[in-house]
Design a protein around this nucleic acid. Sequence first.
DNA 1: ACCTTGATTTTTGTATACATTTTTAATTAA
DNA 2: TTAATTAAAAATGTATACAAAAATCAAGGT
Lengths: 212, 212
Amino acid sequence: MKSLSLYQRLRQDIRQGIWPAGQLMNQQKLSDHYQVSRIPVRDALQQLKAEGLLVMAGKASLKVPELSAAEAEELYQIRLALEPLALERALPALSFHQLGRAEDLLQQIEQQQHLSAADRGAMNWQFHALLYQAGGQNPQLMQLLHRVHQQVERYLGFQELALNYADTSAAEHWQLLKLLREGQNDQALALLHSHIAQAGQLLVQHLTTASQ
Amino acid sequence: MKSLSLYQRLRQDIRQGIWPAGQLMNQQKLSDHYQVSRIPVRDALQQLKAEGLLVMAGKASLKVPELSAAEAEELYQIRLALEPLALERALPALSFHQLGRAEDLLQQIEQQQHLSAADRGAMNWQFHALLYQAGGQNPQLMQLLHRVHQQVERYLGFQELALNYADTSAAEHWQLLKLLREGQNDQALALLHSHIAQAGQLLVQHLTTASQ
DNA sequence: ACCTTGATTTTTGTATACATTTTTAATTAA
DNA sequence: TTAATTAAAAATGTATACAAAAATCAAGGT
């Protein structure tokens, strides 16, 4: 078990709600809490800010951003625009070897029953990323998508949402791999599109009803 | 004239080629060069790294990334996927007031004859951003696109490229505003698409021929 | 009651000093 | 000669101390 960087710990703690939405993240408090000096705290904060996991609050302070249905919708529109593009560009380099690895990962996800919703979201992204990064053709796309998924994961703290969706999502993942293996690329792209659209719809719907 | 932050100065200097592609950016050297301690240098470097304007070189050092036609092509594919989406989402909030501001900006760009290619690229992005951010509906998209354009600007150091393209690009910008003013939204989106595609094609072509 | 204004306090920004890691160079063995 | 190993160096990571800026709060005026 390797020791996590302060950045990783902070990210995890924000996801887990230890620092809830709206929370002001000042360096002194965090430096006390994590028992390090302010320098590594500054580094971690700035990185989180660059990734959008923290936002400016006032002129010089940072806070955990609030969740909003509008933002979730925007994030899924972005996924919808970028991920089919990423898959399309990765297709020529997609080997059976990599499809096999993706299958292993899916199986592994299914076996771990006791995952939190956010953890499940993270593994979900691992699966998608495995496909998109085939051949290393998409470094820029991967970085953007990584950022988008970091943001999305914050919205996946709703356990009931994850439970409802887990089964159908897994089935679609297997189906996607099947199509890719058979070389049915157009159908695979279409499935990916509807897969993301459906997840986004479910999330936005949940956010709009739950918040009201 | 307000004093620039070290981050801004570094960014500018990278764009201008003072720190060329492949250059190792170590904190000590920069701290000497800019006459500040390593702390602000660290901050600036990390921010630049998060934006993709610096990349890891080895285990703990950073360098100015090399330019490649493949990356330019990828960046323009991303623009092509995101910018029409951004415009489409901004359309409902796009007022004549904002179109007027965009026109002012275009005129201003035309009047400044002595701009460097990179500066012209930056103002180009200002114009596009003005349209996309209408209503503040696209905060996430704007951040991603900002990052993409930061990257793209590094490729616009080729003066001859800019000169060839400047006129047709400006004409398309005016045409885009005209269509938007007239409410011809579909045509505006189509024009935006071909506008970006054309610029990308020109750039990639230039890179592939020039490098060989 | 509310909006300024100014002083106080808190917070962030930066420099310096030290610890740790990484990189480089040299040395030795195959 | 080349590869591996290890010692020297250089670079990065972190803590502490101080400077500058921002946020807070209280007093005074409208």
